[in-house]
Simulated assay, not measured.
Amino acid sequence: MPDEYEAALTAALRRLQASDRYESEVRRALSKYPSRTVDRVVAYLQENRLLDDERTTQMVVEFNEGRRAIGVERLRATLEQRGAPDELIENAVAATAQGDAERADLLLTTKFPTPVVQDRAKAGRFLYGRGFTEETIEEALERHFGSPQSEF
């Protein structure tokens, strides 16, 4: 039914208008249409390079860099929530993990430019909220604030 295909294509294009999407996101958005219509729309979008899971993953990774940097745990959760394929998630997490320490350091120097010992716990919570691993947080805090001092 051509009208059904056109309606599904229009809905998919509207969804892609704002930003790149994963195939699974487009399929969810088109769930009210028959599966063969959705398959045709997805095939059309992929052939015309309007739907590309790898490009979408790269966009998500790039969006979460710099001052908006997040750790590998939060990146993994974000990609899983969006519906990224498992292989792309693992590749993105592996590539991101290599620069986790540098991103944590950048965030600390931006958010806490003058290292004050009293801000150490706050900085740790900040990095934890951004999805950095415990090991990365401890190392970044030690580099930025120095070794924790015993009060006794």
Rank of each mutant, 00 (worst) to 15 (best):
A97I: 04
E80V: 00
G99C: 02
P85H: 05
G99H: 11
A104W: 06
D119H: 13
I89S: 01
I89H: 05
A104D: 08
Q118G: 01
T109E: 15
A84Y: 06
D86K: 10
F112G: 03
D105P: 00
K111M: 14
V116R: 13
V116E: 13
V116W: 00
R125G: 12
P113F: 07
L107V: 10
F126E: 10
A101Y: 04
Q81L: 08
Q81T: 10
F112C: 06
L106N: 13
P115V: 02
P85A: 08
A121P: 02
G83T: 08
L108G: 11
P115Y: 02
L108F: 12
K111W: 09
A121R: 11
L127I: 09
A94E: 13
N91A: 15
L127N: 11
T109W: 08
G83K: 05
L107E: 11
L108R: 07
A92Y: 05
Y128F: 10
N91Q: 14
E90P: 01
G124I: 04
Q98H: 09
A104H: 08
G99Y: 05
E102W: 06
Q98F: 07
F126R: 04
R103M: 04
Y128T: 12
Y128Q: 14
A94R: 13
Q81R: 12
A121D: 15
P115Q: 01
V93N: 07
A84N: 05
A101Q: 13
D119G: 00
A94H: 09
P113I: 08
P85Q: 07
L88P: 03
R125A: 15
G124T: 05
K111Y: 10
R82D: 10
E80L: 06
E90N: 08
T96D: 12
R82A: 15
A101D: 13
T109K: 15
E90V: 07
L88S: 03
Q118E: 14
A94K: 12
L107Q: 13
D100Q: 15
A123K: 00
L88W: 01
V93L: 07
A123I: 01
A104S: 09
R82E: 13
N91L: 12
E87Y: 08
E80D: 03
L88C: 02
G124H: 06
G83S: 10
N91D: 14
Q81V: 00
Q118D: 13
A95C: 00
E90H: 05
V93I: 10
K111G: 00
A121H: 10
Q81M: 04
Q118M: 03
